[in-house]
Structures are given as C-alpha cells and as structure tokens.
Design a protein around this nucleic acid. Structure first.
Length: 363
RNA sequence: GCCCUGAUAGUGUAGUUGGCCUAUCAUGUGACCCUGUCACGGUCACGACCCGGGUUCGAAUCCCGGUCAGGGCG
C-alpha cells in the first residue's frame, strides 16, 4: 500500500498503491473539486502528468448527485480520469462562512447553495464516498479558522477525533481511508491530535488546518511537531499547501502528499511558476515577448504559445487563456515534484532544495 | 462662406437646471495578494474637465473669442 524506497534526511521517496494504480511520492495533486477544475479537466490532468487529483465528496454529493455515480459507475468513469482520486470530506468548507451553518457532536450542517442544507456526518461521508468510488477517502474533520482561542481548538479537536474515529469504524471498502490531524497553532494540541489519529490505524495521515492565515513559521512548526507521531511507514499528507517553497520545506520534514488550488488560481491570474523564477504575465514587458513561458518546459502551452499571446489572452480575460495558464502551472508542479523525487533518489535533496529556492522569486 | 453640435484620465464614458466634482464607471498602467476552489478573483495606487478671457462669493457646468472634430446649407 505504501512502500518506502529511499530516504534522504527526513525526506523520503515512496510508492503509494491504490485500486486505481500507484504513484511515487512526494506528489502534488491538482484540485478537481467537482470532477472538474476551473478551466481544466481530465485530459489536462493527464497531459500535465498528474498521477493523482483530489475532488470533493460534499460538493459532488450535491451535484451531480449520488444517483449519477450509482448509474454511471463512479467518479473515474464519470470524468474519464483513470488515475488516483482522493476525495475531501467537506470539513474544510467549515472555513467558508457562507457554507457553514453549525457543528454538532455528530457532524457539520452545511448550506447547499442550490437546495436544502446538508448535514455532513461520518455515516453520510462514507456512503457518499462509496458511491463516488474514489481511491482515498479523507475522514471527516473539524476545521477552525486561524486565531481562535485554545478552548475552541480543544473543543473542535474532540469533535474532529470523534468524527474521524467514526469514519474508521464504518470503513469497510477497498478504498483507502486517511485520518486528518488538527490542533490549530498549539503545539501540544497538534501532538496529541497526531498521536490520537495515528492510533486509529488509518491507511495514511494528513495534517489539516494549516495554510489558513497563520505565519509560515508556525505552519512549519505545526508540521514538525506532528510528524514524529505519525507512522513512518504510512503516507503523510499536508492538506492545502501549494506554494512551491512550502512544499519543499515540508518534503524536507517528511511529508509525502500535497494538494492545493494555489498553482491553478495563481496561474489563471497570470502568476506563472518557472524554474528560473516566478513570472507575472500581466507585466507590460511581455507584450511582445515571443518566447514561451519557460523555454525548457514541455507543457502544451509552452510548446504552443508565446508569452505575448498568452498575455493577450490573460488581458482579454479569455477562458481559453485561463486554461493554458493553468496547464502550465500544473505541469510545473508535476515537474517540480518529479525533480524532488529524483533528488531524493540520488541523495541530493538538500542541494536541489537550495538551488531551487535561490531562483524561486519574482523575475 | 453661413449655421448647428460636440470637446472630461492612454481609451470609452458619467456629470453639463453653477456649489455636495480635491469629478463617475469601465478599461489601462503599477504594486501587493490568492493555499483540503463557487468566480475569467481581491485590495491599493496612478491617471482628465481643449485653449484664452469674462460673469459669480463659487464654473466641468453660464457668456465671449479661438482651436479642433462631426453634421447641415451653399
């Protein structure tokens, strides 16, 4: 299920096996919340070499609805993506004020933008996930915004562990199930959460509730204090991180899996990642630039279009342009992760990290 | 030659019964931002009343002259 191949410091190269195939870690998952991303879908995920993506069980249960998955036969067939698909649980949607109505001991009452409110609880999540037939189910967790009181995090943690345990107890499928640790920015809460979740015997462990506004140093600290308590022989996943520098810092600390909308969202807004630095395509200097976004990049957009043209599409707010820009950043992320894995394999992760960070700034 | 109409940021515009216009909105430009996705997103900054004179406590707004543009008549 999860096999360590090589370690370089705390960074590790491993192989994650699921019912839809395997993928070497560390890897990064593009987001496909509703079985489609903004402006990109399966063919694009495949073309950027993404071996895994993450969708959202809550949103998919609303639209297209479970009946669709029952009749069509699961998300892979539905969206025609053959790789590994994670499904998130809806816990993160607690952070969206427009969606969260209330939490109880048993789950989260979420507003359905187009219909009746939904009470997301472990039973429901497992039922949904089974029908969607994703490869990895993220257990239901209780997420609080950054900056709440310690008491509130303690309370949230109780709920979170209760729901997570319930998910574990109900889980029977051949889908993998990952538990999510929480604890805000309190080290002791993070440690106790990691211990508690680790003891529940999941297929993998996630660290959640980070990258939501806390100082970056605290983010790293929370990852650091959690990791020692998470089984070394199981995958570790930090949810929601998409800044390349944060990813590489977390890999260094022993994280294997990442996901984020960050590269997609920034890409379509004109902020392009390259190994030479970060390009803001909105800048006038690219108006007549015939070069691709990145000379050495083999993504569809770089092989096909100039910066001048992509900038033009960006300025026109053209949907097709958003797709090309998104594709580049997603391809970059896959290349980035591939290089990270390669460097671990060759025992020169530190060297790669140093070289990468030196160039990773706006140009 | 005569008459009419108009002239507001790089562009397109709001305002034109005089004060609330240190001038609207869009776009542009610049800066910052976007992290388990409802936005092709957000925040901030920059940037203009054609020129000259007059009336008035006060003019983008009224009057006179000029310049330019469009239209009409010869």
């Amino acid at each position: 299920m999860f096999t360590l191949i090589k370690e370089d410091g705390n960074a590790r190269l491993a192989l994650l096996k699921t019912k839809s195939g395997e993928a070497e870690t560390p890897f990064f998952m593009p987001v496909a919340t509703k079985a489609v991303g903004r402006f990109v879908s399966a063919e694009d995920y495949i073309s950027v070499n993404a071996k895994a993506i993450i969708a959202n069980a809550f949103f998919l249960s609303l639209d297209p609805g479970l009946e669709t998955f029952e009749k069509i036969g699961g998300i892979h067939k539905f969206m025609n993506y053959p790789g590994i698909i994670f499904t998130d649980c809806g816990g993160f949607q607690m952070l969206r004020e427009s969606l969260l109505l209330e939490t109880t001991n048993n789950g989260i009452l979420l507003k359905n933008p187009g219909g009746k409110d939904v009470f997301m609880r472990p039973e429901k999540l497992l039922e949904i996930s089974k029908k969607i037939d994703s490869d990895v189910i993220m257990a239901l967790d209780c997420v609080l915004p950054y900056g709440r009181s310690r008491e509130e995090y303690v309370e949230a943690l109780k709920k979170s562990h209760r729901w997570t345990k319930k998910c574990k107890d109900l889980h029977t499928e051949k889908q993998l199930l990952f538990g999510i640790t929480q604890g805000g920015t309190f080290e002791d809460l993070r440690e106790s959460s990691a211990k508690a979740i680790n003891a529940m015997d999941f297929d993998g462990h996630a660290i959640g509730g980070v990258g939501i506004g806390e100082p970056t140093e605290l983010l790293y600290k929370m990852v650091e204090v959690s990791i020692p308590h998470l089984d070394k022989n199981k995958p570790r996943y930090v949810m929601g991180l998409g800044k390349p520098e944060q990813i590489i810092e977390c890999v260094e600390r022993g994280i294997d899996i990442f996901d984020s909308i960050y590269p997609q969202k920034n890409g379509r807004h004109g902020m392009l990642f390259t190994f030479q630095g970060i390009i803001d395509l909105g800048k006038g200097i690219y108006k007549f630039d015939e070069k691709p976004i990145e000379e050495s990049c083999m993504c569809f957009s770089c092989k096909t279009f100039s910066r001048a043209y992509l900038r033009y599409l960006l300025k026109k707010d053209d949907a097709v342009g958003k797709r090309y820009l998104t594709i580049h950043n997603l391809y970059f992320m896959q290349e980035f992760m591939r290089k990270i894995r390669e460097s671990i394999k060759q025992g020169r992760f530190q060297e790669f990290k140093k070289g990468f960070l030196e160039k990773h700034k706006k140009i």
